[in-house]
Amino acid sequence: MTFEDLEPRPQRGAAMASLGREDLDLYSVDELHERIEALEAEIKRSKAAISGKAAKKSAADALFNFGN
C-alpha cells in the first residue's frame, strides 16, 4: 500500500468547479490561449467518452432488445 492509496479521492467535478473560480487576471494572453487549447482538448475527450458510452448502450439495447 502506498501513501497515495491512503489519500481521499477528489470528488467528481471538483476540478471543473475550481476552474470556474480561478482568477484569470493572473494569466497572460498567451497563457489564456494555452488554457483554451487545453479546455478544448478536454471537451474532445469528453465527447469521445460520450460517443463510446452511447455505442455501448446501443449495443446492449440491440442485444437485449430494449430498443422497441
Rank of each mutant, 00 (worst) to 15 (best):
A14Y: 03
A14C: 01
E40Q: 14
G52E: 14
S58A: 15
A48S: 11
D25L: 12
A17F: 00
D25S: 15
P10K: 03
E4C: 07
I36D: 14
G52K: 09
K44D: 13
R12H: 03
R12E: 10
E37Q: 12
K47N: 09
A48T: 11
E7W: 08
D30Y: 09
D23W: 02
A41G: 11
E31W: 02
K57W: 04
E37C: 01
G52N: 14
S28R: 10
A48P: 03
L26D: 08
K57D: 04
A15T: 09
R21H: 08
E22T: 12
E34S: 13
I50Q: 10
S46A: 11
D25E: 14
E7Q: 10
E42I: 00
K53D: 11
D23Y: 03
A14H: 02
A55F: 06
R12K: 07
L24A: 08
R9Q: 13
E42P: 01
A41D: 14
K56L: 09
K47D: 11
A41W: 01
R45C: 02
K47A: 11
L6C: 06
D5I: 00
L39Q: 05
K47Q: 14
K53P: 00
L32A: 10
K53I: 11
R9M: 12
I43C: 02
E34P: 00
V29Y: 14
K44R: 10
L32W: 02
R12A: 11
R45W: 03
S18Y: 01
L39W: 00
E42S: 06
K53T: 05
A17G: 08
Q11W: 07
L32K: 07
D5S: 13
E31V: 02
A15R: 13
P8F: 05
M16E: 14
S28E: 07
A55L: 14
E4V: 06
K57G: 04
